[in-house]
């Protein structure tokens, strides 16, 4: 019995870890209502599970105050035999999602901040990677993992270092991070994540057709992906966040000792404590005798 399933793990078996953005601040202002979004996603998850009987789906909710696992097809299937797959799988997920959203809301009362309402992408990404490592540990034959971020909230610049750490770890373990971004502006974090890990970044034009986008771009296993014409990259936003104000910047000052990024000139590096020499050390321009226009 033990050897039977391992034989079946072919190239086209996938483990799909979906990171679901449940940030209430985003959804309250989104043109696509959350309920519609969930119905698109459920249909997509069902498609993925049906594409191969060994396909596995894990859903992690990315909230505003916390993150949690809300569905795992490998542990859920046992309980839901009898009533037919589809309703059982949905009700299972929806029930957990409901609980999660309530809990996320309850945690909210403590902290209140105006302006940016990003969700905790770094947390759900880290959890997804831990789960995938467990699948890697389970033996030489395992489904091929990939991560899909269904995200809408704007980037939280304070998560910059954590998200980059997660991206590099995913790259080292060759786990592609796909992202489907339904927010208004493009997400620099997700563009970088998909670019560095070799995943697909997509910003759907027509949100009502979300299911079509999901099923045509993200449902195929990694092995078959090579023979598909996937959407080409529309460029990557490589902007970084400064360490001093957590602002997203495209030009900045770098500490030559520890490479910390700052948006303005400081006397002392707040990360490593180095005291900086000259005021403006634009090494390139001074030695080149080519004066830069805005200095």
């Amino acid at each position: 019995m033990a050897s039977a399933p391992s034989k079946l793990y072919a190239d086209d078996v996938s483990l799909l870890v979906v990171l679901l953005d449940t940030n209430p601040f985003f959804w309250s202002s989104s043109p696509l209502p959350f309920s519609k979004f969930i119905s698109h996603v459920l249909a997509f998850l069902n498609t993925t599970l049906r594409l191969h009987q060994l396909n596995q789906v894990v859903v992690i909710a990315t909230g505003y105050n916390c993150c949690d696992y809300i569905y795992d097809s490998s542990s859920a299937t046992n309980q839901s035999s009898g009533t037919g797959m589809m309703p059982a799988f949905c009700s299972n997920l929806l029930e957990k999602l409901d609980k999660f959203v309530t809990r996320d809301e309850q945690l909210e009362k403590g902290g209140q901040e105006g302006g940016i309402a990003s969700s905790l992408l770094s947390g759900s990404l880290s959890m997804a990677l831990c789960y995938i490592q467990r699948i890697f540990r389970s033996g030489p034959l395992h489904p091929h993992p990939r991560i899909l971020c269904l995200h809408g909230s704007p980037d939280g610049p304070e998560q910059y270092v954590a998200i980059m750490n997660a991206i590099f770890s995913a790259q080292r373990s060759m786990v592609p991070i796909d992202s489907c971004y339904i927010g208004a502006q493009n997400s620099a974090f997700l563009q970088q994540a998909s670019y560095i890990t070799g995943g697909v970044y997509l910003k759907p034009q027509i949100l009502d057709g979300l299911f079509q986008y999901l099923s045509t771009v993200y449902a195929t296993d990694l092995h078959s992906r090579g023979s598909l014409q996937l959407p080409k990259s529309v460029g990557v936003d490589f902007r970084a966040s400064c360490f001093c104000h957590k602002r997203t910047i495209d030009m900045g000052y770098i500490c030559s000792v520890c490479l910390s990024i700052f948006c303005m000139h400081h006397k002392k590096c707040s990360t490593c404590g180095s005291v900086f020499g000259q005021a403006q050390s634009d090494v390139a321009s001074t030695s080149n005798k080519r004066k830069t226009p805005d200095t």
Partner: peptide, 19 residues
């Protein structure tokens, strides 16, 4: 010799393949 300094740097965007 190189005293700790702040170096001004830019983080360019990657352009799309078809531009």
């Amino acid at each position: 010799f190189a005293i700790a300094s702040l170096i001004k740097m830019g983080f360019p965007q990657r352009a799309a393949e078809n531009v």
